[in-house]
Design a protein around this nucleic acid. Structure first.
Length: 322
DNA sequence: AATCGGCCCAACCGCGACTGA
DNA sequence: GTCAGTCGCGGTTGGGCCGAT
């Protein structure tokens, strides 16, 4: 990021020459705090567009914003930056968050890096408001074994189920559409999908353009989808990007399954993972009927919550499975 | 209609890491 | 090696929104 900024640096001499500490900045002008106005957003956006990111303290002064550099950086990264996606997390994104948090803990920036367009702040807020809420409803801690079991045996399978259902519905719609489309057009519009990404291939039937690109973090190789080459699958991670928000998340999850399976087959990435079962196993559980009963996790008596109450999330339909 | 309480999210704060002088 | 400046991350909070009473 810094390198990018340095490349397009065009600061006024007076600003670049000066060393502006945060303390001096505070003393020089009364800094604004609280919500950003549209005017401030426009000033910041225009300035970053013209001069690039980085050197936030200097940027704040040079742009005439009465904000700290920190505030400018936060506003840009979490709100104004192109590509930032907002709104509810799709099932695929939720699935990724649940699993990545089990691997990495509260490494929000690292987790967010695997979710294109999402910020660490959004992921963090999702965890605190949604996930922790359910732990609270169960009367247990998010770090407890019980909650881990609930996530693993109930929540995640339901998310997988939901993703499958969405993909199937979309494929059905596409079948109708494609039946009215010349064959040559169909072939020309098919995106290139790695051989291992079977689920992503079905997702491509949405008609959205799905692009697979190398992921920067090798550590994420078991989280994002890998290429068909087994030699690359354990080192060169990939992630889906798409021009459709819905597809971005669904595609990410779809790739996730196949790659995790690949990683599992290679014996990688299951060491300290609480979801230490294979994803093929988890996928199998997604279509179970009696699995929950066998775990005993339906027995929430005494918690003041019925099963239906707990799984009343729109995207987790217990009725659908039991 | 008014009030209350919980939820959610944007923004702030504190701290550690990094970098350059 | 030290120190100041800056950045980035994770934790926390203030306030708006909305449903319940």
């Amino acid at each position: 990021m810094e390198a990018l900024w340095m490349g397009s640096c065009d600061w006024p001499a007076a600003i670049t020459a000066a060393t502006i500490s945060e303390e001096e900045d505070d003393a020089a002008v009364e800094l604004r705090r609280g919500p950003w106005t549209e005017d401030e957003d426009a000033v910041l956006s225009n300035y970053v567009a013209a001069h690039g990111e980085g050197r936030w303290n200097e940027l704040a002064v040079a742009a005439g914003l009465r904000r700290t550099g920190k505030s400018c950086r936060l506003r840009w990264l979490n709100y104004l930056r192109p590509g930032v996606r907002r709104g509810d997390f799709a099932p695929g994104e939720q699935l990724l968050i649940l699993d990545l948090h089990s691997r990495w803990g509260n490494r929000w920036a690292k987790i967010a890096a695997q979710l294109p367009g999402r910020t660490d702040n959004e992921v963090k807020n999702y965890w605190r408001t949604r996930v922790q809420k359910h732990a609270k409803q169960l009367g247990c801690d998010v770090g407890s074994r019980r909650f881990h079991d609930v996530v693993r045996h109930h929540w995640m399978p339901r998310l997988v189920e939901r993703i499958h259902a969405d993909a199937a519905a979309a494929a059905a719609v596409d079948d109708v559409v494609s039946s009215h489309r010349p064959a040559t057009t169909t072939m020309a519009s098919e995106p290139s999908i790695p051989a291992g990404c079977h689920a992503a291939s079905s997702s491509s039937n949405y008609g959205s353009r799905v692009v697979v690109k190398p992921c920067a973090s090798p550590e994420a190789s078991c989280v994002t989808t890998g290429p068909s080459s087994s030699s690359e699958s354990s080192h060169g991670a990939h992630q889906f990007q798409t021009n459709s928000p819905t597809m971005a998340s669904t595609g990410a999850a779809a790739g996730y399954w196949s790659s995790t399976e690949q990683c599992h087959n290679a014996g990688i990435g299951s060491g300290d993972d609480m979801f230490d079962g294979s994803w093929s196993e988890l996928l199998a559980r997604a279509s179970y009927h009696d699995e929950a009963d066998s775990t005993g996790l339906h027995d929430f008596d005494g918690l003041g919550e019925t099963v239906d109450n707990f799984w009343s999330l729109d995207d987790i339909s217990l009725q659908q499975l039991c």
